[in-house]
Design a protein around this nucleic acid. Structure first.
Length: 480
RNA sequence: GGCCUUAUCGUCUAACGGUUUAGGACGCAGCCCUCUCAAGGCUGAAAUACGGGUUCGAUUCCCGUUAAGGCUACCA
């Protein structure tokens, strides 16, 4: 068997869709698993959709995710160029070859004519399909119009009365009646190829052995099969992945939540967590294991274990997975990831030792990197306000008195460690004849402004004596 | 409308005709632990869309219905 070559072929629309990320991931896993090549190819054949900087963004996002490609823009490879807009003559040559062989034909219809045709077909409840009027043109007429520079396209002449079968690893054999297949435009009037032509020509020329892509392509695969047959090329193996869905089960899209990988990057999800989560949307190893590194996924992955039904992209599981990765991430890495987030929030970046303390306290509690900042701003700056519910629940008329009582002994501490603080707080509670909670809860409110968070004593030790005393003082005066 | 695909707990899924009182995870509820939260431990509620076949036996195979989704562009 020849070496596996797969490709991820996004169009540069400005950002990488999470569905695209999963397609890229499965291609990557399959390539690595079989020691093959993973190619990145840019499908920028729609000039109207071109977005400045999109390719760079795509590459950057893939890099963030850790999905390194072997061939593609910036990565080299001897089957390039890997950007379709740089391969235009290739597509025209192939399309014209098909015309010469009678397998495709020129058409000069205007947009208006096509729309009128379609409207009429719809009115008569017929399937919209090109009626092949261009086939009635005489050779002379075609030559004359071509020479005259008339706008034209090249259409595929789909064979009559046959069945086109697609063999798909995931879905088995899927058959289509050729009558149902439209004479697809291969080369547009602006000289650019359509996806269908470019995709087939490139996959063949780039030696792609397995086409792993989303299910939305299954319906147009027979057109691709016909093209391979017209050119006399071997078919690649097809694998159409189930779609990623919105909570309402429609195809995952914007407007129903975040679909750009960058959104998750910004929210503070770790790439390996996102990848791990997304890998399980449509695939599983067959047993109960759920946490996998990229390398482990490579080891375990197989297209045979990819499911057929669409999967809803819901956040709960992602959060859970990210939490698990956060807990095991190294302190140094977390610190590096948190520093820029503090700056983005206009917070002063504390020294390494302090930040390491914050991480120690928050590691088990944070769902995202962002929560190391927004979930505990009181660790960086004095609380501006007290959480209303927490105040109601934990601040009693007698609370101020306890805090006043605990302040001097805390101040007297020569070593402000967690156990020293705890001892101090407990003895003040005892002296006042109340349970420790009567002091702890208001103290927590005073120090952090909220009712939840890390252990109080550890937190106070990190904040330091003067900060704690200052905050206690302020609580006593403002909360009374 | 037509073509194609899909159908197990709320969600992601396991089960590749019998080992199943349909398993796990997330989420949810309760309990334990506990200074709160988180983590952890224990417990619980929760599913084979429906109807026909095939078979000694169907979640598993076939057909139909229903539902959902995709495609139906000179977009990918």
């Amino acid at each position: 068997m020849s070496t596996v070559r797969v490709r991820f072929a996004p169009s540069p629309t400005g950002y990488l869709h999470v569905g695209g990320l999963r397609t890229a991931l499965y291609n990557y896993l399959f390539a690595r698993k079989h020691r093959g090549s993973f190619i990145l190819r840019i499908e920028d054949t729609d000039r109207n959709r071109y977005v400045e900087g999109a390719v760079e963004n795509l590459v950057r996002t893939l890099h963030w995710a850790g999905l390194a490609f072997d061939e593609g823009p910036g990565a080299g490879g001897d089957r390039g160029p890997y950007v379709q807009s740089e391969r235009l003559t290739l597509y025209r040559d192939h399309a014209e070859q098909l015309v010469r062989e009678g397998k495709a034909y020129y058409a000069f219809d205007s947009q208006e004519e096509l729309e009128a045709m379609k409207a009429e077909q719809e009115q008569r409840h017929l399937t919209p399909k090109y009626d092949r009027r261009a086939l009635r043109l005489t050779p002379d007429e075609i030559q004359r119009r071509l020479a005259g520079g008339d706008a034209h396209v090249i259409r595929l002449k789909v064979p009559d009365d046959t069945t086109v079968a697609v063999e798909d690893i995931i879905r088995g054999r899927v058959e289509f009646a050729s009558e149902m297949i439209d004479d697809q435009v291969l080369l547009k009037s602006d000289g650019y190829p359509t996806y269908h032509l470019a995709n087939v020509v490139d996959d063949h020329l780039m030696g792609v052995t397995h086409v792993i892509r989303g299910e939305e392509w299954l319906s147009s695969t027979p057109k691709h099969v016909i093209l391979y047959q017209c050119f006399g090329w071997d078919l690649p193996v097809f694998a159409h992945l189930p779609l990623l869905l919105n909570p309402d089960r429609s195809k995952l899209s914007k407007r129903q939540g975040d679909v750009a990988v960058e959104d998750y990057m910004q929210k503070g999800y770790l790439p390996e967590a996102l990848l791990n989560f997304i890998a399980f949307l449509g695939w599983n190893p067959g047993d109960d294991r759920e946490i996998f590194t990229l390398d482990q996924l490579v080891e375990e992955f197989s297209l045979e274990r990819v499911g057929k039904s669409g999967a809803i992209f819901s956040m709960e599981k992602l959060n859970s997975v990210n939490k698990q990765y956060l807990r095991t991430a190294s302190e140094a890495r977390l610190a590096d990831l948190i520093r820029p987030r503090l700056q983005a929030h206009g917070l002063a970046v504390p020294d390494d030792q302090y930040l390491s303390g914050v991480i120690g306290l928050m590691k088990e509690r944070a769902t995202t990197l962002e929560e190391f900042v927004t979930g505990c701003t009181y660790l960086y700056t004095d609380p501006l306000a007290y959480d209303e519910d927490a105040r109601k629940k934990n601040w009693k008329p007698e609370s101020a008195g306890y805090l006043r009582a605990v302040s001097p002994p805390l101040d007297a501490l020569t070593h402000f460690g967690a156990s020293d603080i705890e001892e101090c707080v407990r003895s003040v509670a005892e002296q006042n004849g109340v349970g420790t909670g009567k002091v702890i809860h208001p103290l927590r409110l005073a120090v952090s402004g909220t009712a939840k968070g890390p252990g109080l004593f550890e937190m106070m030790a990190l904040l330091g004596k003067s900060t704690c005393l200052r905050r206690i003082d302020r609580a006593v005066t403002t909360l009374g």
